[in-house]
Amino acid sequence: MARLHLTVLCATVLLALAAPTLAGDPDMLQDVCVADMASPVKLNGFPCKANITADDFFFAGLKKAGNTNNAAGSVVTAANVMSFPGVNTLGVSMARIDYAPGGQNPPHTHPRATEIIFVTEGTLEVGFITTANKLFTKTITVGEVFVFPRGLVHFQQNRGYGPASVIAGFNSQLQGTQAIATTLFAAAPPVPTDVLAKAFRIDNGQVDAIKAKFK
């Protein structure tokens, strides 16, 4: 019996130690691996560029506010591997999110990363929803931080009278983003209208009207 208990304890410890490795990108196996975006090789990540410089590890794209003149009233400027190849294999990325007054970063998920935001301007209502449909929400302002667990639906809404902005961090070089409304109503090819009508308990005409807004 004692041996069985020891075996169970060892297995539990091993699982606990392994769990963090499942929460982000795979560990790097070399010091650096700047992404070679021009390579035709396809793999889970990006192959390494042969000749690198300090500029490969530099990104200035978050210095200026983005254009929030759109339907959502927000814009995300990403510093992930697609725009910043130096983060390839490092398991981290960032983004700047700007919001017009009343602007919203609509409900979405990041299937490959937890997100943490730091408010640099304005006042935001933020929240996430668990798989048990429990909403956790809070109003945050300049200098405050909020975290959104990996894979859970979350949002930010500007509740102030002026512009707002945050800096977001992710534990993935490419966090992936699925905006819920866009994913469902603007997929290509489209999700069948009757599927969405039944899911949202509305009629086909209402679904078609929503789809039209995303064209």
Rank of each mutant, 00 (worst) to 15 (best):
G91E: 11
S93C: 10
L62P: 11
T53A: 02
G102L: 08
A11S: 15
N70D: 04
A65K: 02
G102H: 12
V8E: 15
V34W: 03
I116N: 10
A50I: 01
C33M: 05
P47M: 03
N70I: 05
Q30I: 03
D27S: 14
R112L: 09
G66I: 09
L62G: 07
P101M: 02
N70Q: 02
Q30S: 14
A54Y: 00
A50P: 00
A78S: 14
C48P: 06
L22E: 11
F46G: 01
T109K: 02
A19F: 15
T12P: 02
A11K: 09
I116C: 13
V41D: 04
K63M: 09
T109F: 01
G86L: 10
D27F: 10
F59C: 00
D25V: 07
A100M: 09
G73P: 10
F57I: 05
R112D: 05
A113R: 14
K49N: 03
L29E: 12
Q104T: 13
A11V: 15
A65R: 03
N105M: 08
D25H: 11
V41E: 14
F58S: 04
P107G: 05
P85H: 06
T89F: 06
D56P: 00
N67H: 09
M82S: 15
H108R: 01
T114L: 10
F58H: 10
M28H: 11
V8R: 15
A23D: 11
L43R: 07
V13C: 13
L22H: 11
D98S: 10
L15Q: 04
A38K: 08
A11N: 13
E115D: 08
A38N: 15
F58A: 06
A79G: 11
T21I: 06
A78M: 10
F84D: 04
D56W: 06
Q104W: 02
P101D: 12
N105Y: 12
G86C: 11
A65H: 01
P20E: 03
T114Q: 13
T109Q: 05
T53H: 02
L9V: 12
A38F: 01
V76E: 04
G103C: 08
L29W: 01
G73F: 07
